[in-house]
């Protein structure tokens, strides 16, 4: 696996995207990683997908229905992940993880799985897979507009001891090398993703926390509003690009 990482870095093309163009993360992957991402038989993320599909059918101890009990087979979730984050009926902005947690606590009356738990990552991956290849289609108008604006503000604000905004890397320096990495357009379409550096599957917020730390800014808690609003803005930037989850990353 280590060799793969080195190889991936060596093979990576230094193509620089023209400013403003948001490219699919897969287009920044080395041919090896890209092949791995496209091959369920070798992609380690499928362990979580399989786990998520089992959880989907499993009834909670509360005596309430399983996910399947209310929603039917998981294939019915086609296209759902492509629409998240979305504003719920009570006005809250929910990402896919938070939407699942809501069903867990309110509809199943069971204790929340918890952000970054194996169970939540698995269900998220299994549901997101049902949108693989479909274009990102988040709602950005109406009730979503104010959240989108908050996310955009966060994205454009310089922060941390290194005083960098997200866009200074993910718009202005796309395609350039930052040490061993080639900077991508910084969208979340591949998450949850299996990152070789993590040696496990992780959520988009885990990746965002890594970028916050990279500029020595406060790492926000998982599920923090600012990250969810940012997630919406990233999805708006990625509109029309295919969902890649579960992704494979360095």
């Amino acid at each position: 696996m280590r060799h793969l990482v080195v190889l991936a870095a060596t093979l990576m093309l230094g193509a620089t995207a023209s400013a403003g163009e948001v490219r699919a993360p897969a287009s920044f992957l080395s041919p090896d990683l890209r092949a791995l991402q496209d091959d369920p038989s070798r992609h380690p993320g499928w362990l979580w997908v399989d786990g998520g599909e089992a959880l989907w059918r499993e009834a909670p101890r509360s005596g309430r229905p399983s996910c399947e009990g209310c929603h039917g087979p998981i294939d019915g979730m086609r296209g759902v992940a492509a629409r998240y984050p979305a504003v719920a009926s009570d006005g809250a902005l929910l990402n896919l993880e938070a939407r699942i947690e809501r069903c867990r606590t309110d509809n199943q009356q069971a204790p929340a799985f918890g952000y970054e738990s194996e169970a939540l990552l698995s269900l998220t991956a299994a549901i997101a897979l049902r949108s693989r290849g479909l274009p990102v289609a988040v709602e950005t108008e109406g009730a979503a507009a104010q959240h989108l604006a908050a996310g955009k503000r966060f994205y454009e604000t310089r922060q941390g001891q290194l005083n960098l905004s997200c866009g200074q890397c993910h718009d202005e320096n796309v395609g350039r090398r930052l040490r061993g990495d080639v900077i991508s357009s910084g969208v979340g379409t591949g998450f949850p993703a299996y990152r070789l550096e993590w040696n496990t599957l992780g959520s988009l917020h885990r990746r965002l926390r890594a970028c916050s730390l990279g500029v020595r800014a406060t790492q926000l808690p998982y599920g923090a509003y600012d990250y969810v609003a940012l997630e919406l803005y990233l999805a708006a930037r990625a509109r029309g690009l295919p969902v890649e989850s579960p992704g494979i990353r360095r």
Binding site: R158, Q159, Q168, R216, T218
Partner: peptide
């Protein structure tokens, strides 16, 4: 784009570990 290596003023959301210290 280059970080300011000897400045502490007017920075936002600096991680507590590095607050009040220049790089």
């Amino acid at each position: 784009v280059m970080p300011a290596y000897h400045r502490i003023a007017d920075l936002l959301r600096v991680d507590p570990r590095w607050q009040g210290r220049p790089v």
